[in-house]
Structures are given as C-alpha cells and as structure tokens.
Computed example of a mutant assay.
Amino acid sequence: MDRFGTDMVKTSPTFHFISGLPRSGSTLLAALLRQNPRFQAGMTSPVGNLFSSMLNQFSAGSEFGPVITQEQRKRLLAGVFNNYYADQAGKDVVFDTNRQWCAMLPALLDLFPQAKVIACVRNVAWVMDSIERLYRANPYENTKLFNDDVERNTVYSRVDTLAQRNRLVGFAWAALKDAYYGEHAKSLLLVEYDLLAATPERVLRLVYEFLDEPWYEHDFEHIEYDAPEFDQALGLKGLHKVRPKVAVEARRTILPPDLFEQYAELSFWKDSRSSEANVIRTSREAQDMGRDNG
C-alpha cells in the first residue's frame, strides 16, 4: 500500500482522437473500436467545447490570462480529458471524437505527444448528399443545422450554408485541410469511408498498425450504436444511428447534377505530394458511387 492509502496508483489512459468530415464514418469507426474492451470511443463528446472555453479564459483579453502560467494552462487543459474520462475503469485507450481537433493539433500533441488523430473522409458531394437525405427524412422538423428559412429553403441554400467555413461541413473540411498540410501531419491518419464500409477488417487492421496496438478480433456482423436523444435535440433523427452490419449500399445521388459536381472536386487528400499525412484511400474511380452505413 502506498502513502496515499491505495493499493496501486491509477495511470491515465492513452488518448487518441477521431476527427474529419461529418457523415464520413466516424460513428461507425467508434462503434467498431469500442468493441475492444480496452478501448473507449463514441460520438462527439463535450470535451472539445470545454477545451475551447477554458482556453478562451486563458487568452489575451481575459482578466485571468495574466495570472495563469503556461504550465498551469497545460495542467488544466489535460485535466479536462483526465477528469471527463475518469470513470472509464479498465480502458487503456480513449478515443475522443470532435471535428475541431484537426484545427488544434499543436495544443493536442503538446499535451499528448504520443497521440494520433484518425480523420474520416469522404467525397464532399456524398457528404452533402447524406445530410440532405437525413433532412428530407425529417420533413416535419426544422433542424438546428439551419438558422432560418433563408438557409433551409432549397437544396441549394442548404448545401451552400453547410459549406460555409464556420458551419458543419465547411469548418470540418477547412480544419482537416489545415492538419493535412501542417507540421503535425505525420500524426494524422485519413480513412476513406467507402473503403471502411467495403473492407472493414482490412481498414481496421491498418488503424491498429498506425496506433501500434495489438489486434483485436472485431465482430463486423453485429454493431451497436445509436444516440436518439442527441439526434432528437438537434432535430435530425438518425444522424448517429449505425446499422448492425457493416455493408455498402449503392445509390444515386439526390443532389442536382450541377451541385454534386461542384462539391465532388474537393477531395484534396487525393494529392499526397505536399503532405506527410497517412491516408487509407480508394482509387478515384471508386468515387462514382455513394454508400451509407451511419
């Protein structure tokens, strides 16, 4: 027994992060990873917002900034992670999900030097198609994705709104591009949704290799994840529901052709010449078909 009266000192888990584009497989990836009893993973947590809010209190313009040292800032921010996940007994590895992590790599990797970021990606046109399908599946609800009728009136206004740099898709895309070409790109692994849905075991083995973790035999026929209360509060039923079996589903887009073509050319991760990021991707020819699995 140590001097604190406990039989052993609890060690902090290893932290990794899931980020990237919405509707690109992050919930599916988390649902698979959480099958491993050593892993904790899930949908977007409040840690990102808590982290940002605390950082604002430290920064220029805050009355508290001048009295909080750099080391105190780091301890407080690291404490957000450690305290939020303190009740995850037996979990050696924690994956926190948030699209803003790609924009905060300098801070994350200073706090957790061994951390890795897995960014889920997908042809942006199919991201927009997937969100539009969810919107149309909830015709009696004005989702919180849009602020007013001007933004939600037509598919054109909805997609253009989502693409703005401070909105759901536009912010995630810009943050990911920032990380992809940034100085911490080696800590980033991009996973293409089409490949994850088509060959989940192959992709997951590469993820484990990237994380330097021993392989765990996953069950790709029985997957469980849903967050109906969260989705209901957002006004977008089914946003985080994952089907029980990983499978691909071919379909035609519901976006007008000109709109689809406009956003289909934004897959910057197809060009690896100026980035040190790791990418699991399909060939360009595979992008002519959209697939959804949650």
Results as ranks from 00 to 15, higher is better:
A198W: 04
E249L: 12
D110P: 02
P13C: 13
L234C: 02
S45L: 00
L50Y: 15
T253G: 09
T253S: 09
S45W: 00
Y181D: 02
L236K: 12
D178P: 06
N278P: 01
L109I: 12
P106T: 04
Q40G: 13
Q164G: 03
L77W: 06
L211V: 15
Q57K: 09
A30W: 00
G42D: 05
G238N: 00
Q287K: 01
V155D: 01
I223M: 05
D96S: 05
E265Y: 03
L206A: 13
L239F: 15
R75F: 13
N83Y: 06
R273T: 11
A41R: 02
E285D: 02
T44W: 14
Y193I: 15
P37I: 14
A175Y: 00
T253V: 02
V121I: 13
R152W: 15
L195A: 01
V94S: 03
F51C: 05
S62Q: 12
W101S: 08
N123P: 05
F220V: 07
W126A: 10
N153E: 11
L134A: 02
P106A: 08
R205A: 05
F95K: 07
L21G: 11
V203Q: 12
P106Q: 05
G90W: 10
E221I: 11
W101K: 01
E141G: 09
A174K: 13
I223N: 03
E265G: 11
Q70S: 08
Q100D: 12
N278F: 01
P139N: 00
D231V: 01
M1H: 02
W269V: 03
T154E: 03
K237S: 03
D149T: 14
K177I: 14
L195M: 02
F58I: 04
P106V: 12
S274A: 08
P139T: 00
S12V: 04
W101P: 12
Q70L: 14
I254E: 07
S157K: 00
Y263D: 06
N56P: 08
R23P: 00
R122G: 06
R167N: 05
N138V: 01
T6L: 09
N166H: 05
D288A: 11
S267E: 04
V203S: 02
K177Q: 03
E229Q: 04
L162V: 15
E209N: 14
F95P: 09
D231K: 00
R291C: 09
W215C: 07
T199P: 06
T143R: 04
Q262N: 10
T97I: 10
I18G: 08
